[in-house]
Design a protein around this nucleic acid. Structure first.
Lengths: 254, 254
DNA sequence: TCAGCAGAAGGCACTCAGTACCTCTGATTA
DNA sequence: TAATCAGAGGTACTGAGTGCCTTCTGCTGA
């Protein structure tokens, strides 16, 4: 049996969810059954060699039902992105004017990585698929594009007063997505065993250092003022709490 | 009637056949006839409402021939990208080590815009299509992705000696593509009447100012060289939890 | 308790993209 | 003139995706 992403989604299955409450044990909703069946077959035969008929036969449901839950065969490979996209939109909508816009979109990108990291085995399996199937790669690109446009839309709003607002928004959004994808891919290549959050932070750090805290209109990438930089030199053997204390002290200086 | 990239009507195919032998990459006229027929029908009925049978009927050729020239129905909408991609690869391969890598990829991006600008009417018509047909947008994304990977591949080579080489390459490539697309879209929205080159220069200027001429190998939490010493470079504005995470990640490395 | 209702699921038939395989035709060459 | 070869057409097939209708099931109100 194959792992299935966290059970969150369920627009059509909402009724079933409440109904299953009375029934005690929830029977696996059809959507999850289809994903499970698909991800049992894909690694065996490959994506293209697996027909929708194969999937519905294994799941024991009618063919027509497949397309009720997934508009296309590709959609079954990315069952959670709609939800994640909604989360990201919501997260950005909840942003305050005082926030650093760049930091905000970086945090929004972290939501996506968190979704992947919630089910490492599933994510890695999917990565194996998307790597070799051009159709799936194309689908993934359109998903990524929607994330990028969401981030860019937010930034365009925040940079509305700048003359170079839209282009700056687009470029920063692209940078964030590229950095995120870089981290995500290296995490996936590592089999999902590394610390995904740390990888992401490291990748987004370049974006933050480059784009964050640029108030002036039309100014290039101004390196941060010297006094803002804190250098910490320590040893691996030092207890973490002591490092934290020292960093905190350095931050508080002046 | 519709404009087509390189106009060559399909009539007696004999002479062109011998010509193509000498010219090497000269396009068979049937290919152009198919593109012309497609772009006559698409604006009338829409992309999805036009079947391949409609196109071949109008072009007066067999259905099988369509798929000999275009692997998919979408391909007929982007008949020149393969060539442009090859040009870009060639251009980057011809780069010298002394060149500024960022300036080089910006120039490579200009090649793409130049291709669009060669046939403004055709480009604008295609833009109208891709805007409203999700399938075509997806196809376009995969084309853009290939350009981006080409640029990133070049930059990865140029930044091979940097610790943050791959991520820097990916982020800069994404920035260049985003800036280019921003300019391209505003040119297309303007009906292809503005000065495309000027728009592109303006857009790429932000990328140049931001990324060009940054020799130093900057990094957040740099992985320890060989001994126990860990160097963390951060900024006061960075949230403490993130610093802690970076330090932790640096400690865990190796 | 039952009729009726609504929504979820199944079934059927259809369109169309894309492929495999074969034939035909016309030009070139031995 | 015969052999060959490449480009084009034709036929039949698979499989994704859709429209429409039927069936089932669980809920609700009389």
């Amino acid at each position: 049996m194959t792992e299935v992403p966290t059970r969150r989604r369920a627009a059509p299955a909402a009724k079933t969810a409440t109904a299953s409450k009375t029934a005690g044990t929830a029977k696996p909703p059809m959507r999850d059954a289809l994903v499970a069946a698909a991800f049992q077959l894909f690694p065996e035969r490959g994506f293209e060699q697996t027909t929708v008929d194969d999937i519905v036969a294994l799941a024991g449901v009618g063919r027509r039902s497949f397309f009720r839950y997934f508009p296309s065969k590709e959609d079954v490979v990315f069952p959670d992105h709609e939800r994640c996209l909604a989360d990201m939109t919501e997260f950005l909508d909840a942003s305050a004017d005082g926030d650093d816009p760049v930091a905000r979109v970086c945090d929004a990108a972290r939501l996506v990585l968190r979704m992947y990291a919630e089910n490492p085995a599933f994510s890695v399996q999917r990565y194996q698929l998307t790597k070799k199937v051009p159709g799936l790669r194309g689908y993934e690109l359109s998903v990524v594009w929607r994330y990028e446009r969401t981030l860019a839309g937010y930034l365009r709003g925040r940079y509305a007063d700048r003359t170079d607002g839209t282009i700056r928004a687009d470029v920063i959004a692209a940078s964030v997505v590229a950095a995120h994808n870089n981290a995500l891919r290296s995490w996936l290549r590592g089999g999902g065993r590394d610390d995904a959050a740390a990888l992401t932070d490291q990748a987004l750090d370049l974006v933050m250092r480059t784009w964050s805290g640029e108030p002036a209109d039309g100014a290039g990438a101004t390196p941060p003022p010297e006094d803002d930089v804190v250098v910490v030199i320590t040893r691996r053997s030092t207890p973490l709490w002591r490092v934290v204390r020292d960093v905190e002290a350095a931050f508080d200086e002046n």
